[in-house]
C-alpha cells in the first residue's frame, strides 16, 4: 500500500504526475475513492488556499496545485459517479461581453475544477444570452463572470438582468470578480457573490450552493 500522505504532498506541491500515479496505484490497490478525496486531496487543496491567503503561496503555486488536483480527480471521478456521488456543482464561467482578458477567469476555473466543480468554460466576450443559455440548457448552478476593465463591467449588470428576465433568478447563482470589481458593485447589480481572488472564489461558490 502506497503511503497516501504522499498524495497530499503531491497535490500541495503541484506535482501532477505523482498525484496521478499515486491515485492510480491506490485505486488499483482497492482504495476507496471517496476516502482519497476526503482525507488527502481536499485537505491538500484547503491547505493550498490557506497558504495563499497567508501570502506563503502565490498564484503560480495555486495554479500548479489545482492542476495536480484536477489530474487526480479525473481518475477518481468516474468511480465516484458510478458510486452515485455528486459533483460540488456546475459552474458556467466566462469574461463579460467586450472583455478579452481571461487570465483571471482561467485561474478561477482551474481552482473551481480543483475544488470539485464541473466547469462549463464559455470563454471570452460572452454575451448575456450565452450565460442565460448555459443556465437554462446546460444546467449550470452558478454563473461566474469576470471583467478586467471598468469599460466592460456594465456587461455584468446586463447579464444579471437577463438572468432575471429569463425567470432564473434564485435558480442560478451569480458570482463576479476581476480587478476593478468590488463587493459594493456586486451588491449594486444584485450578484450573489464576489471574490477578489481565485481561492476565495471556490469558497464563495461552495457557500452559494450550500
Amino acid at each position: 500500500m502506497t503511503d497516501l500522505q504522499e498524495l497530499y504532498t503531491a497535490v500541495l506541491e503541484g506535482d501532477a504526475p505523482s498525484a496521478k500515479s499515486l491515485v492510480q496505484t491506490a485505486l488499483d490497490g482497492g482504495a476507496d475513492p471517496q476516502e482519497l478525496l476526503a482525507k488527502y486531496m481536499i485537505p491538500a487543496m484547503d491547505e493550498v488556499g490557506r497558504l495563499f491567503e497567508a501570502n506563503e503561496y502565490f498564484v503560480p503555486e495555486l495554479l500548479i496545485a489545482a492542476r495536480a488536483m484536477k489530474g487526480a480527480l479525473e481518475l477518481i471521478r468516474p468511480k465516484l459517479v458510478a458510486a452515485g456521488a455528486k459533483s460540488a456543482g456546475k459552474v458556467a464561467i466566462g469574461t463579460v461581453r467586450g472583455d478579452l482578458h481571461d487570465i483571471g477567469k482561467n485561474l478561477v476555473a482551474a481552482m473551481l475544477e480543483g475544488g470539485g466543480f464541473d466547469i462549463i468554460d464559455l470563454g471570452v466576450d460572452v454575451s448575456p444570452e450565452k450565460f442565460v443559455e448555459a443556465a437554462r440548457e446546460k444546467g449550470a448552478d452558478v454563473i461566474a463572470m469576470s471583467a478586467l476593465l471598468t469599460t466592460t463591467m456594465p456587461g455584468m449588470k446586463t447579464t444579471v438582468d437577463a438572468i432575471d428576465q429569463a425567470g432564473l433568478k434564485g435558480k442560478v447563482k451569480v458570482m463576479i470578480g476581476g480587478a476593478p470589481v468590488t463587493q459594493r458593485f456586486a451588491d449594486e447589480i444584485g450578484a450573489d457573490g464576489f471574490s477578489d481572488n481565485a481561492s476565495g472564489a471556490v469558497r464563495i461558490a461552495r457557500q452559494l450552493l450550500a
Partner: peptide
C-alpha cells in the same frame, strides 16, 4: 496560463 497576456 499567466504570461500570454495578449492572446485574445
Amino acid at each position: 496560463m499567466l504570461c500570454n497576456t495578449t492572446r485574445n
